[in-house]
Deep mutational scan, measured.
Amino acid sequence: SSRTRFTDYQLRVLQDFFDTNAYPKDDEIEQLSTVLNLPTRVIVVWFQNARQKARK
């Protein structure tokens, strides 16, 4: 499976959201998916990875 290449804009939006809320609800994931034009699955994985990094 090929890795998703995020744009600077997508990363900024995801990071800004994460800084406020590391555990987005389903409807928030749907909204991010629509706004960023990314599959919900990709967003879910991004947040999982971001939470892992934040824990270190």
Score class of each variant (00 low, 15 high):
Asn21Asp: 08
Val13Ile: 12
Phe17Met: 12
Val35Met: 13
Asn21Ala: 07
Phe17Gln: 13
Arg3Gln: 13
Val44Trp: 05
Phe17Pro: 00
Pro39Leu: 00
Gln52Arg: 03
Leu36Trp: 01
Arg3Met: 15
Val13Leu: 06
Trp46Glu: 03
Ala54Leu: 10
Thr4Ile: 12
Gln10Asp: 03
Lys56Ala: 03
Gln52Gly: 05
Asp8Ile: 02
Lys53Val: 15
Arg3Asn: 15
Arg55Ala: 09
Leu11Cys: 04
Asp19Gln: 10
Leu36Ile: 08
Asp16Asn: 11
Thr7Ser: 12
Asn49Cys: 05
Ala50Cys: 13
Thr7Leu: 03
Val35Pro: 05
Asp16Val: 05
Lys56Tyr: 13
Arg5Val: 14
Arg51Asn: 02
Phe47Pro: 00
Arg3His: 15
Phe47Ala: 03
Ser2Ala: 03
Thr20Tyr: 03
Val35Trp: 06
Tyr9Arg: 14
Ala50Tyr: 08
Pro24Asn: 00
Thr34Val: 08
Tyr9Glu: 14
Asn49Thr: 14
Leu32Thr: 00
Pro39Tyr: 01
Ser33Met: 04
Ser33Ala: 04
Val45Phe: 04
Gln10Cys: 03
Leu38Phe: 05
Ala54Tyr: 05
Leu32Ser: 00
Pro24Ile: 05
Lys25Val: 10
Lys56Arg: 07
Leu36Asn: 01
Tyr9Pro: 10
Thr4Gly: 04
Val44His: 11
Arg51Ser: 08
Val42His: 13
Val42Met: 05
Thr4Val: 02
Phe17Asp: 02
Val42Gly: 10
Gln48Leu: 03
Gln48His: 03
Val44Tyr: 06
Leu14Ser: 01
Asp8Cys: 08
Lys56Ser: 04
Gln52Lys: 10
Phe17Ile: 08
Leu14Tyr: 00
Leu36Thr: 13
Gln15Ile: 08
Trp46Arg: 04
Ala54Ser: 12
Val42Arg: 06
Leu14Pro: 00
Arg3Ser: 15
Thr7Glu: 14
Glu30Leu: 10
Gln48Ser: 07
Tyr23Thr: 09
Asp8Leu: 06
Phe47Gln: 01
Arg3Glu: 15
Leu38Asp: 01
Leu14Gly: 00
Thr20Met: 09
Val13Asp: 14
Gln52His: 12
Val13Tyr: 14
Gln15Gly: 09
Phe18Thr: 03
Gln48Val: 10
Leu11Gln: 01
Tyr9Leu: 13
Asp16Arg: 09
Arg55Cys: 09
Pro39Cys: 10
Leu38Lys: 04
Asn37Met: 06
Gln48Met: 05
Ile43Asp: 00
Val35Ile: 06
Glu30His: 12
Arg51Pro: 00
Lys56Leu: 04
Thr34Met: 08
Arg12Lys: 09
Ala22Val: 09
Leu14Trp: 00
Gln31Val: 06
Ile43Arg: 00
Arg55Met: 14
Ala22Ser: 14
Phe18Ser: 06
Ser1Pro: 02
Gln10Glu: 05
Ile29Glu: 02
Arg3Cys: 15
Ser1Thr: 12
